[in-house]
Every structure is written in C-alpha cells, then in structure tokens.
Amino acid sequence: MSATTTILLLPGWQDSDAPHWQSRWEAVHGDHRVVQHEWMHPRRGDWLARLEEEVLAAPGPVALVAHSLGCILVAAWAAHSRSTAKVRAALLVAPGDLERDDLRQMIPGWAPIVRQRLPFPSLLIAANDDPYCDAARSRQMAADWGARFVDAGAAGHLNGESGLGDWPQGRALLNDLLKTTDKED
C-alpha cells in the first residue's frame, strides 16, 4: 500500500485570503499550506528554500497545488531541487506573467520565468480573461512545462474574487491527476 500523499498548497503573492479556494481546501480537506515568511515582498530564494523544507518534511509523496506566483515557484524549484522524485503531480492554477513589465516591477526577482519541462505530471488551469496573464501566455507556459492545459473560461484570476467557493471542479481535476499517477506507479 502506498503512503498517503500530502497536498502542499502554494499560494501566490500576498497569500490566499479566506474566500480563496486554497484556504477553503485547507479548511475542508486538511491540505497543508506552505507558509512563506514574507508574502508582500517575496524573495525567490527564500520561497524556494521554504518549499524544499516542506517537501523534505512530508512523510511520503506530495502533490503541489499552486496558485499564481506559486506556479512560477514550482517551475523554479523543480529546475534546481534534488527532491522532485517526491512529487506525484502538480496542479498549477492561474500563473502570473512575471515577465510582464508591470508585474516584474511589483514583484522583482522572479523573471525570467523558468520554462524547463517539469519532471512530474502536471495540469495547468487558467481563465481566458485573467488580468495577470494573457491566455496565450498561460498556454505557452503549460506547453513549456509539459503540463496539460485546461481553459477555465471567463473566471478572472481564479482566486477568492472569482466566486469559486470550495471549487469542486478544481478538486476533481486534482483527484483525476493523482489517479493517473497511480496508474504509472
């Protein structure tokens, strides 16, 4: 029998507020939020180190569930970590385009975005009207990372303001992604 998978929630810039689906998943499903020491002025190296600590601390395999800057974190971490074998899969939701001038100035130190293929199965979900990332850029990130792409339609940044609630559709996609990794084991 395989070990239980720890779901690591990776919020983006400024953390995920109470109405955000990540906060709701933490409350409803008991998923584990990776708490960064600095949400307002994120330093890439600090965030990478914190994710590495949490992956290593997990008693068994992990699934990464990232939102916005958290997606960019997963790509950067996967390119440098020696712990990627512990990751069963990654659900990447609404990546922010940190190469865009306005976002690069608000959140410095994260560009260029790592575009290396991820060494684990992944699924990227993005809306076609996300104010922080053009739909074509989201699709290109998915292709570069080797992630399957799901178009969420007109849903904004897929955050608390999107009105997703517990976002059962997202949870179903995560569960399906994890089922496919079971077949590969």
Score class of each variant (00 low, 15 high):
His67Leu: 02
His29Tyr: 14
Ser23Asn: 02
Thr6Trp: 00
Pro11Leu: 01
Arg44Ser: 08
His67Thr: 12
Pro59Val: 01
Glu38Trp: 04
Leu10Tyr: 07
Asp17Pro: 14
Val55Trp: 13
Arg33Asp: 06
His37Pro: 15
Glu38Lys: 00
Trp13His: 14
His37Asn: 12
Leu69Asn: 06
Ala18Thr: 13
Val55Ala: 04
His32Val: 15
His41Asp: 13
Leu8Ser: 12
His41Glu: 13
Leu10Ala: 07
Glu38Asn: 15
Asp46Asn: 02
Ala49Phe: 00
Asp15Thr: 04
Val35Tyr: 01
Ala57Tyr: 04
His41Lys: 11
Pro61Cys: 02
His29Arg: 15
Gln22Tyr: 01
Leu8Glu: 03
Val34Gly: 07
Ser16Asp: 07
Ala57Trp: 03
Val62Cys: 08
Leu9His: 08
Asp31Met: 11
Glu53Leu: 05
Leu69Thr: 03
Pro61Asp: 06
Glu52Ala: 14
Glu52Val: 09
Leu69Val: 09
Leu64Cys: 09
Ala49Arg: 15
Arg44Gln: 15
Ala63Glu: 10
Pro59Tyr: 02
Glu38Ala: 14
Pro19Trp: 10
Ala57Thr: 04
Arg43Gln: 15
Leu51Lys: 06
Ala57Leu: 10
Ala66Trp: 08
Gly45Gln: 14
His67Ile: 04
Arg33Thr: 14
Leu51Gly: 04
Leu64His: 02
Leu48Ile: 15
Ala66Asn: 08
His20Thr: 04
Arg44Trp: 03
Arg24Leu: 15
Ala57Ser: 11
Trp25Arg: 10
Asp31Arg: 08
Arg33Lys: 12
His32Phe: 02
Pro11Ala: 13
